[in-house]
Structure formats: C-alpha cells, structure tokens
Measured scan of single mutants.
Amino acid sequence: SRSVIRSIIKSSKLNIDHKDYLLDLLNDVKGSKDLKEFHKMLTAILA
C-alpha cells in the first residue's frame, strides 16, 4: 500500500533529497497498477 511504500522510503539509507524526491513522486502516482510499478522501481533502487 501507499503507506507501506512511504515507510520504506523514510526508513531507507538514501539521503534526504532523494527521499523527498521519491515521496513527491509517490504523491503523483495514481492507480494500483502505477503503485505496483513504483514499488518495483523502489525495490530496484534500494537493492
């Protein structure tokens, strides 16, 4: 869910600018399909 993804971003080791950017992107995501794609992208970034 959106709140879980937000929590993953906030607890990541990324610097604050990257976190803010990803949180802004997350706010722009519409629909469950796009949310799944965003989660895939985030997982790849944090891997």
Score class of each variant (00 low, 15 high):
Lys40Phe: 06
Ser7Trp: 15
Thr43Glu: 07
Ile8Ser: 04
Lys30Glu: 07
Ser11Gly: 10
Ile16Ser: 14
Asp17Val: 13
Gly31Cys: 05
His18Glu: 13
Leu42Val: 09
Lys30Cys: 06
Ser1Ile: 15
Ile9Asp: 00
Asp24Leu: 14
Leu26Gln: 00
Ile16Asp: 11
Leu46Cys: 03
Asp34Glu: 14
Ile16Pro: 14
Tyr21Gln: 08
Val29Gly: 02
Ile9Arg: 03
Thr43His: 08
Lys19Cys: 03
Val29Ala: 06
Val29Asp: 02
His39Thr: 10
Lys19Pro: 01
Leu25Pro: 00
Asn15Arg: 12
Ile16Glu: 13
Ile5Val: 05
Ile9Ser: 00
Ser32Lys: 11
Asp20Arg: 15
Val29Cys: 09
Asp24Met: 14
Arg2Met: 11
Lys10Ser: 07
Ser11Asp: 09
Leu14Trp: 02
Asn15Glu: 07
Phe38Ile: 02
Val29Gln: 05
Asn27Gly: 10
Ser1Gln: 09
Asp20Trp: 15
Leu23Ser: 03
Leu35Gly: 01
Gly31Gln: 05
Asn15Ser: 14
Lys10Tyr: 09
Asp34Cys: 09
Asp24Glu: 13
Leu23Trp: 03
Ala44Met: 14
Ser12Val: 03
Leu22Ile: 03
Ser32Met: 12
Ile5Gly: 01
Leu46Glu: 01
Lys40Ser: 09
Leu42Glu: 00
Asn27Trp: 05
Leu22His: 00
Glu37His: 09
Ile9Gly: 00
Asp34Ser: 12
Ser11Leu: 13
Asn27Met: 10
Ser7Leu: 13
Val4Leu: 13
Gly31Asp: 10
Asp20Ile: 15
Met41Gln: 06
Gly31Ile: 04
Leu14Pro: 00
Asp28Thr: 13
Ile5Lys: 01
Glu37Asp: 08
Ser32Phe: 13
Asp17Cys: 06
Ser1Ala: 14
Gly31Trp: 07
Glu37Lys: 15
Arg2Leu: 15
Val4Ala: 13
Asp28Leu: 14
Lys33Phe: 08
Tyr21Asp: 03
Ala47Arg: 13
Ile9His: 00
Asp20Gly: 15
Asp20Gln: 15
Ile5Asp: 01
Ser12Tyr: 02
Val29His: 04
Leu46Pro: 00
Asp28Pro: 03
Asn15Thr: 15
Ile8Pro: 00
Ser1Trp: 15
Met41Trp: 14
Thr43Arg: 14
Phe38Asn: 00
Leu26Trp: 02
Asp24Pro: 01
His18Val: 14
Val4Lys: 11
